[in-house]
Simulated assay, not measured.
Amino acid sequence: MKILVDADACPVKSIIEKVAKNLHIRVLMVIDTSHILESEYSEVIQVSKAPDAVDIALINRTEAGDIVVTQDYGVASMALGRKAFAINQNGKYYTEENIDLMMFERHLAAKQRRAGARTNTMKKRSKEDDLHFETAFLGLCSQALLN
């Protein structure tokens, strides 16, 4: 079992490493060449800036029982297809029960954006957001270790 992180814009990398280190779980952080990331714990995998290069590299390394941390519903869906666990940066679990609806909502939001509508306003990340992620992530790691 390992943890794979879509690390380009991931705001919880340090929390992931802290939890993984405490539980002795290997971490792969995947980034593209427009980012710089150094880690004393994680293995950093840098790929080209080609469209979806990070997503493809991450999924190609994903195996059943792994944990994938991503904001991308498409990556989460592919991870679930490989029988991996998936979670976003806010601690929301992606599951077989909720991924179809999330993908559909993403499609509708993209359609609205193409028509000129604003679909989302991001709020500043808080300490509570980080704490919620850490709690959910620790629970997911514990669950994955038991499988």
Score class of each variant (00 low, 15 high):
Asp6Gln: 02
Ala7Glu: 03
Ala7Met: 08
Pro11Asn: 08
Pro11Val: 00
Val12Gly: 10
Val12Met: 03
Lys13Ile: 12
Lys13Cys: 05
Ser14Glu: 11
Ile15Asn: 14
Ile16Leu: 04
Ile16Pro: 06
Glu17Lys: 06
Lys18Ile: 00
Val19Asp: 10
Lys21Gly: 03
Leu23Gly: 04
His24Asp: 15
Met29Gly: 10
Ile31Pro: 07
Thr33Arg: 05
Ser34Arg: 00
Ser34Val: 02
Ser34Leu: 02
His35Lys: 15
His35Cys: 04
His35Arg: 15
Ile36Ser: 05
Glu38Phe: 10
Ser39Tyr: 07
Ser39Asp: 08
Glu40Arg: 00
Tyr41Ile: 04
Ser42Gln: 06
Ser42Asp: 07
Glu43Cys: 08
Glu43Thr: 00
Val44Trp: 14
Ile45Tyr: 06
Ile45Thr: 14
Ile45Gln: 13
Ile45Glu: 03
Ser48Pro: 06
Lys49Pro: 14
Lys49His: 15
Ala50Thr: 13
Pro51Thr: 08
Ala53Leu: 12
Ala53Asn: 02
Val54Ala: 09
Asp55Leu: 03
Ile56His: 01
Ala57Asp: 00
Ala57Arg: 10
Ala57Lys: 11
Leu58Met: 05
Leu58Lys: 05
Leu58Tyr: 01
Leu58Asn: 08
Asn60Glu: 10
Arg61Cys: 03
Glu63His: 08
Gly65Thr: 05
Gly65Asn: 03
Asp66Tyr: 03
Val68His: 03
Val68Glu: 06
Val69Asp: 02
Thr70Met: 02
Thr70Ala: 10
Thr70Tyr: 05
Thr70Ser: 02
Thr70Arg: 05
Gln71His: 14
Gly74Phe: 11
Gly74Glu: 09
Ala76Thr: 09
Ala76His: 01
Ser77Leu: 02
Met78Ser: 14
Met78Phe: 15
Met78Arg: 13
Met78His: 15
Leu80Glu: 04
Arg82Tyr: 06
Lys83Arg: 15
Ala84Ser: 09
Ala84Gly: 02
Ala84Val: 09
Ala84Glu: 09
Phe85Val: 00
Ala86Met: 00
Ala86Lys: 03
Ile87Lys: 04
Ile87Pro: 02
Asn90Glu: 08
Lys92Trp: 09
Lys92Asn: 06
Tyr93Ile: 12
Tyr94Gly: 04
Glu96Phe: 11
Glu96Ile: 10
Glu97Ile: 08
Glu97Gln: 09
Asn98Pro: 07
Asn98Ser: 04
Asp100Ala: 14
Met102Asp: 05
Met103Cys: 11
Met103Asn: 12
Arg106Ser: 03
Arg106Met: 14
His107Cys: 12
His107Gln: 15
Leu108Gln: 15
Leu108Val: 15
Ala110Pro: 04
Gln112Asp: 15
Gln112Thr: 14
Ala117Ser: 08
Ala117Ile: 05
Arg118Val: 13
Arg118Met: 12
Arg118Lys: 05
Asn120Gly: 10
Thr121Ile: 10
Thr121Met: 14
Thr121Asn: 15
Lys123Met: 12
Arg125Thr: 00
Arg125Gly: 01
Ser126Arg: 13
Ser126Asn: 06
Asp130Ile: 04
Leu131Lys: 06
Leu131Met: 12
Leu131Phe: 10
